[in-house]
Design a protein around this nucleic acid. Sequence first.
RNA 1: GCCGAUGUGGCGGAAUAGGCAGACGCGGCGGUCUCAAAAACCGUUGGAUAACUUCCAUGCCGGUUCGACUCCGGCCAUCGGCACCA
Length: 833
Amino acid sequence: MFQKYDHRKIESKWQSFWEENVFYKVFEDEKKPKYYALEMFPYPSGNLHMGHVRNYAIGDVIARYKTMQGYNVLHPMGWDAFGLPAENAAIKNNVPPAQWTYSNIDNMRGQMKSLGIGYDWGREVTSCRPDYYKFTQWIFLKLYEQQLAYKKAAAVNWCPACQTVLANEQVVEGHCERCESPVEKRHLEQWFFKITDYAQRLLDDLDLLTGWPDKVKVMQKNWIGRSEGCEFSLEIEDFGEKITVFTTRPDTVFGVTYMVLAPEHPLAERLVSGTPYENGVSSFLENIKSISAITRTSGDIAKEGVFTGRYAINPMNGERIPIWLANYVLMDYGTGAIMAVPAHDQRDFEFAGKYNIPVRVVIKGEDFPEEDVRLTEAYLGDGQMVNSGLFDGCTAEEGKKKIIAYMENNQIGRGSVNFRLRDWLISRQRYWGAPIPIIYCPVCGAVPVPESDLPVLLPEDVEFKPNGKSPLNYVADFYKCACPVCGQEARRETDTMDTFVCSSWYFERYCSPHTADVPFSKKAADYWMPVDQYIGGVEHAILHLMYARFFTKFLYDQHMLSCQEPFSNLLTQGMVLKDGSKMSKSKGNVVSPEEIITAYGADTARLFILFASPPEKDLEWSDQGVEGAFRFLNRVWRLVGEYAELIQDGGQSSGGFEDNESGALRYKMHAVIKKVTEDVQERFNFNTAISSIMEFCNALNGYREHERHNLPLIKEALNNLVLLLSPFSPHICEEMWRLLGHEDSVHQQAWPVFDPEALIQDQVEIVIQISGKVRDHITVSSQADEKEIENLALARPKIKEILRNKNVVKVVIVPKKLVNIVAKQAEESEKSI
RNA sequence: GCCGAUGUGGCGGAAUAGGCAGACGCGGCGGUCUCAAAAACCGUUGGAUAACUUCCAUGCCGGUUCGACUCCGGCCAUCGGCACCA
């Protein structure tokens, strides 16, 4: 008699076995095709949540499946271990961030092992360890060498709660991405990475990413925000200076009736100083400053402006146009100044309406009376140029090109391109991050730390109270140093790097995690990179994925990598919900993975989470659903257990006879192999793959009811059942594989292959429709030709009955599927004749 | 406002190239076993109808087609991204 399914015993047994045998260790093997499966490495918050479980379960199925398909699979895991929560916990509990972080890592590593995820733990990477951040700093130095890391004073996003600056990408609707406090603007000197130099490539190469969801590519495209147009300068009357503007609509340049500078524009105050307009302008600027931080980010605000009393000259027609300041022009896009064309730009139209500025139509659409300038809104459509001198009659599209050419020939301006993407602000005024490897010398200025002095170690014994300055400011042992160039007493940079810097290259480190002289070996990276399948939450669609692409392109340019894109295929998994909303402590709807694993086992948890929904969609947690998955594993267990002994001794002697039931089972077996293979490989639809394994199990249970058993067939079917299920629920399958008499691991077997011959049926069921509605079914030989099928269908008594008093107009036949008889009422068709 | 996605039983979801709507699982109902219950197993389960039957059903309205969850046009709702980007 076989034993009850004891998930605890089975899972701990095989977890130890895999660990003791270093089962998932991989190395570069030129004889095998490689496959790199990667899940986003987690922040070590302390415990896995269901989102992690889902992420790793998906990755593990893919990794195990590819291994069985004969690939040499790299499947690593690590820790995105720098960051604010460690500091906050440290402040709260008075535990050093390092200690907090490392103990969380130990705990979470244990949880991952208890899920039975097949990682090569020999490649574990931890971004807060000196052997890792040494190379984060090393890459910083390379960027600095190429002038892609630079320091500048700028208006930056400041989170008052986190007491640090944030990158543009970390500001969501004016609020801190992490703590949701409203973000303020501060003028500070900070380190930036010049990601804008890569804007065009980051945009163009999205086309190479055929394995990415369109949704993510569109988000990145919008974030990069390329617009094409031109820049030109306007002379300021009686001022002796010029203002440069950027526009995407040079075709409307004859429609300019005013121009606008951003309130922060350096010329703004100088234009009015000593003029009667000075007071008006400065009170306007004061006003803007006081509301801008909060209100300018939150929803619609009315357009407001002030006239400077100054005029500029439109270089195309010599017209004098008034210069305004207005709140709707942003300093950090384009040149911070615009030409305003109220007739053809809605914002300018609204502003002109409010301040009684003329509107001049210069693009005439179809059915658009030339005289009528009383527009109710800006005209944004295509049309012919009018009121535009030499250019009258051109289409807007031609006009753009011609005017740019004219400006270039007459040295008025030039074609140019603008991006919304800003440089990446990487300084953080916090402790728990990789120190920026720069030294400030009173004589030599900013000096990079020599490569041989890396890593710049983060001191461990530190007071880490946040007060807007990095805690490293108060650690003399840290900041006091000698200038590497002249030897004078100097001071280290005390800001640390944004944690997104650390996570922008970890997938390359996995390729050779122990190299000590370079971030990763080129040879190993050439073998493993790019990542064949990356899996993670869609919340990283912009931040992490953009930064990681940027780093990969930079490292490619440094000849350290041979690929230009890090991730060939991307799967963005949905969230795990409970009662319709995301699991969170505040809502009290959290289901802990540990509890589920203890009660039902990792195999059940994984099976449920993969079965409940396709991976891209959100998943609704269901306790009953988990029970269902558990029941299914119990059914499989019993099925295998009950047959195991029979097969062991009787498998060979009992004949391989073929009756109808056996034929049906054989057919089902091959159909299921085909279905599961396609679902896993081509669509990642694990839910339907599992459902067809369930069907197969049901079929096997049904077959058991019959009196005669074809034991060799059953043996084959059970072997295949266990093989197909093994990527999803690895422990129970490992155990059942041994019960079926095998000596080796199920996870090292070849994936089953279906036999197309076995899927050819001599009889097929065909649907009979009358005018598109199903009325009957017939079973015919799969060889039957169309005429035969038609005759058989028309001969069915039920069909005859329905067709009485009707004329058959047409018969449509789809081979092996259906026959549709189109019929009309007899009277009607007579009438129509 | 712009861009994108989604909408199917009581629930999660299936229908992969326009061809049987509701696979598989959950829940419900009925049964077997049991002193009883749980577990397990078997049957049943979109709605309407007494019904073999028939009719109605894939957010709503229309269209194309022999045939539409699937394609086209127009709405509605929900979710996500961006949001004065010149």
